[in-house]
């Protein structure tokens, strides 16, 4: 009992310390890793990219951060989202801005799945347009190099594993993308469902993912898989492939059964029966009454004659 209590106290203290320090971080310091901090854009920050970035900013960022320089950010949030044209925000390197935008933290959401890498850089281009003293350092990255990359996707039913192979066919020979980040997704109606975590390939360029056994596919069990490879040298490369590895799913229409709320042709039989019976009884009684009235009429006619 005592032991447990101590453990509990230690845990609480630890959690509390972590929370407080996290809070402190989120207030000011984003603690961006050095390599990410040094990252530069391969997109030129000019009027075109800034213009495209403005549209993206207004759609995704303005609701909290407000318009740059207008001081109309959302004051009810804690911390208050900074004005991104401010000197303090502009002090951040392109790499830091990119990292913050990509990962997010606490109140600030991640835009990794919302904006492509190109789009994220365009937003930063827009933000830099408010900084007169800024000069861009372009990344040496060559977008054309992505064409050299060859991706391959295979599935082993016995072990239920999906294997991705990522290599680049350089002039010098086949190069393994050993520093690349490889992600596997299953396409869903509104977005991509990531399968396990992103991993780096092994020395032979293979990345192996355990595929869940219970993921629904279409009627035949087909699932559209997407492999996304992100590499510092080769950029973003994607491969799509349909495989029959999901659970065949063919759920009936939610309107299939008879129900009290369904359309009249799908009404429960007891209601149809009772309603029709009621109307039928009424019709018979009415017919009887009309018949009786006509008999009275005829009888009177005969008497008069």
């Amino acid at each position: 009992m005592f032991r447990k209590n101590t453990n509990l106290k230690v845990t609480i203290t630890l959690v509390f310390t972590v929370l407080v320090s996290l809070q402190a971080f989120s207030q000011n310091n984003w603690n961006v890793p050095a390599d990410k901090k040094a990252k530069n854009s391969y997109i030129k920050f000019d009027a075109t990219s800034a213009g495209q970035g403005e549209a993206l900013y207004n759609k995704n960022c303005a609701s909290c951060h407000g318009n740059p320089g207008k001081g109309n950010s959302m004051k009810t949030l804690n911390p208050i989202p900074p004005d991104l044209s401010s000197a303090k925000s502009q002090e951040l390197t392109d790499g830091e801005l990119f990292y913050i935008l990509t990962t997010g933290r606490g109140v600030m959401p991640s835009f990794k799945s919302v904006l492509s890498e190109d789009e994220r850089w365009k937003v930063i281009s827009y933000l830099r347009s408010f900084n007169k003293g800024y000069t861009q350092v372009l990344s040496k990255f060559d977008p054309n190099k992505s064409k050299l990359v060859k991706l391959d996707l295979s599935y082993d039913a016995a072990t239920n594993k999906v294997t991705v192979k990522a290599v680049a066919n350089e002039k010098s020979g086949v190069v393994v993308l050993k520093d690349a980040e490889i992600s596997l997704f299953a396409t869903r109606y509104f977005g991509r469902l990531q399968i396990e975590k992103s991993i780096r390939p092994d020395a032979t360029g293979l990345a192996v993912f355990n595929f869940p056994k219970d993921l629904p596919g279409d009627k035949k069990g087909t699932v559209e898989l997407v492999v996304k490879v992100t590499d510092e040298n080769y950029g973003e490369i994607e491969l799509q492939k349909n495989l029959q590895i999901g659970v065949p799913t063919d759920k009936p229409s939610l309107r299939a059964d008879r129900a009290i709320w369904n359309v009249v042709t799908k009404a429960p039989l007891w209601i149809i029966f009772l309603y029709s019976l009621g109307v039928l009884v009424f019709a018979l009684v009415l017919a009887y009454l009309v018949f009786s009235l006509s008999k009275i009429w005829k009888s009177g006619n005969n008497n008069q004659k």
Binding site: S113, V114, R188, L193, Q194, L215
Partner: peptide, 20 residues
């Protein structure tokens, strides 16, 4: 989050991340 129960997936409207 919004999605299709038949696909067992919902997508977050803000981060566009998809979950089971």
């Amino acid at each position: 989050y919004f999605g299709d129960e038949n696909e067992d997936a919902v997508t977050n409207g803000t981060t566009k991340e998809t979950f089971r």
